[in-house]
Design a protein around this nucleic acid. Sequence first.
DNA 1: CGGTGCGTTGACATTTCTCAACTGTTGTGG
DNA 2: CCACAACAGTTGAGAAATGTCAACGCACCG
Lengths: 239, 239
Amino acid sequence: MIDCYPMDLAERQLFLTRLPHFRPLSRKLVERIAQATTVRDLDIDQALISEGQPANSFFAVVSGRIRVYRIAADGHEQVLHHVHDGQSFAEPALLSMGRYPAHARAVVASKVLEIGGQAFVSLVHGEPGVATAMIGSLCMWLVRMAERVEELSIASAPARLAHYLLALPASPGAEHLEVDLPMTKKDLAAHLAITPETLSRLLRRWQDAGVIENRQRSIVVLDSRVLVGIADRLEDSGP
Amino acid sequence: MIDCYPMDLAERQLFLTRLPHFRPLSRKLVERIAQATTVRDLDIDQALISEGQPANSFFAVVSGRIRVYRIAADGHEQVLHHVHDGQSFAEPALLSMGRYPAHARAVVASKVLEIGGQAFVSLVHGEPGVATAMIGSLCMWLVRMAERVEELSIASAPARLAHYLLALPASPGAEHLEVDLPMTKKDLAAHLAITPETLSRLLRRWQDAGVIENRQRSIVVLDSRVLVGIADRLEDSGP
DNA sequence: CGGTGCGTTGACATTTCTCAACTGTTGTGG
DNA sequence: CCACAACAGTTGAGAAATGTCAACGCACCG
């Protein structure tokens, strides 16, 4: 864990300024928001929110990654989102629902900013600038959710996986594109609503076909055109 | 089509007052919003929004039903939502995206209120009450989307269908609960990401088992406990 | 160095889709 | 008002995809 020192007010303020939806706010407003924050350092797998708790805060991820999930009726853990650094979450819970609708837990050791309480809520209701910022933030979440719905509506597992890989930010490897997987393959399987076995077999098949290279925590895309074709459900060359 | 007469300002204002997120607003504010609206009467299957158009308005459904959808890469129509009377949509497009992210089209003959233009946007940015109302509206959408994600993440078709039926508002029939299907079975199948054939077979099987009665546009639930069990993936008594 | 759990692989069971044919309903034009 | 066209809905048979169960290798952490 790199950033495991306490953040002072100026640091918290600087971090807030960098969040997309607080960027347009005046220095003074951001300072007032920063005063209503506290820092939470989380160990790996440490719980942050339990479903049903009264919502008194929302959160922004400074570093690390948070898993937002619910427990299905059969006890299975259903992942709603992975929240990365620079993103915030649980705004709706604080602003209009009153209770947290899901669990949240650190995937890796993480540092989050807790922004909360009545102080922030009254700021939203009283300051048009803050309200506008929150509207922008909520709209971003809606777009992400719409993408997620579209992704999950894709019937075939190969198409869902290809779609997901192509949407991930790619860093130029030695010669081809290399995408870092932001979670374990087990979690990725859950995210795509398939089993880990199916995921493993798909990656194996594409590797054998020379389309990708399957590494530990990343995928090297050797022929993205084939992946695009699979994502568009044109055809997947079977086993 | 019942309401195919023009709505005057007072009627539009009254309708807006009834929308959940405009209810808390003062009479004067609602009147100013109403002045920025126009009525659109749509025939069955008539287009309202095309994906990619510049967004200058958002919409509220007075009567009828609007289908929000996207065209997938393979030409398949992917339904994101069905919007019913008393609900609004496309707020994010107007407030922060600038362009419509999806198509919208009338499922049946419908009347929608177009609320729009710079007038409304400046009202949102200037009037804390309106901004708060929009925040509430966006939060409701987020909750709906989260439910949709959870629904689609359920792996098995019987569980998805049972979950959907149980979430639908039920009217007490002669003796048992009767739920009206808000769309055709073909569209319902698309909504659940299954084929119409699979849907038909599931309803048939449950009817044969005495759990439901399969009518044209509604389902009579004879034994909701069995449905709850199926939704929780406990077990579905096979054919 | 040994355990814990991810990732992989194989064999098998099950679900769901696909294709094709048929039935029923609805709405329209003669 | 009826006949017909168009299309939602149903049913069946077979194929394909995916899940389940089981076993094993391997990395990582204590």
